[in-house]
Design a protein around this nucleic acid. Sequence first.
DNA 1: TACGTAATGTTCATTTCTAAACTAGTTCGA
DNA 2: TCGAACTAGTTTAGAAATGAACATTACGTA
Lengths: 137, 137
Amino acid sequence: MPVDAARLWTLNHRLLTVVLDACTADLAELGLETKEFFVLAEAETSPHPAELAATLVISKASMTAYVRNLCAKGFLRREIDDMDLRRHRLVLTPEGTAARDRALAALAAEFDRRLAKVTSRDRSELQRILTSLVELG
Amino acid sequence: MPVDAARLWTLNHRLLTVVLDACTADLAELGLETKEFFVLAEAETSPHPAELAATLVISKASMTAYVRNLCAKGFLRREIDDMDLRRHRLVLTPEGTAARDRALAALAAEFDRRLAKVTSRDRSELQRILTSLVELG
DNA sequence: TACGTAATGTTCATTTCTAAACTAGTTCGA
DNA sequence: TCGAACTAGTTTAGAAATGAACATTACGTA
């Protein structure tokens, strides 16, 4: 069986959408849209909206909307960055941290369910390979 | 470094969008939108729109639009399936086959560029792991 | 045969996402 | 200190994608 780029892409796309669909209900119970979850999950690592939009590969305009909703729900707070007054520093509220952790657990459970027949070594391999693929310019 | 489901998802998402962005120009030269390409690439394997929409995880409504465009461009042709008169059987024209093959080559080249620092064994591993992840119910 | 259920592809109204223009703050060099 | 060029986040107009309703065809069963 040849390693076909298009097939690889399709597989990947299906994996993402299928796993995400399976988690949508869990996230909704926590009060999170799926995209909002990813913003929340990465907000500590990339606390500035522009940077966060770049790492999640979504537009700044969408980021504005997600942050607005997350703030309205009390999961996130905007603060002014003293280092650069143009910037907003995103800070998770206690509720936001709790929701994020529970959402992560739900997503991990779905991945684990799928990874049950895949060794943990494979999971590390997957992350290693994907990381190297993304990091290449 | 722990294997984090959310991070794995983000990596995967970034890989897909980044690789695809890199190919957009090549595909455009061939007269193909990126989504149209995936429809064209899978049309022989899944020649019926409903089935094709399911495997690509896009809506039937979107599929209607993509097929309409691909037909207008002369890459695809709709025929009536004699076995089931509700169905359309999608057939690639010679131009469609040529465009698909050249697009596949361009996409493969971009993957290869990224996989240059990754062994070919890794590439097989990647496909194997992704396949098993998708195939689990 | 006749009828209920289900599947296919299309259309339309709505939601979702984005590119581009805009305001505000920063940086740096003359 | 002035201003030109840059970056951050927001707004808005329009593109892209979808869900739901619809007409048509298929298939089983009474």
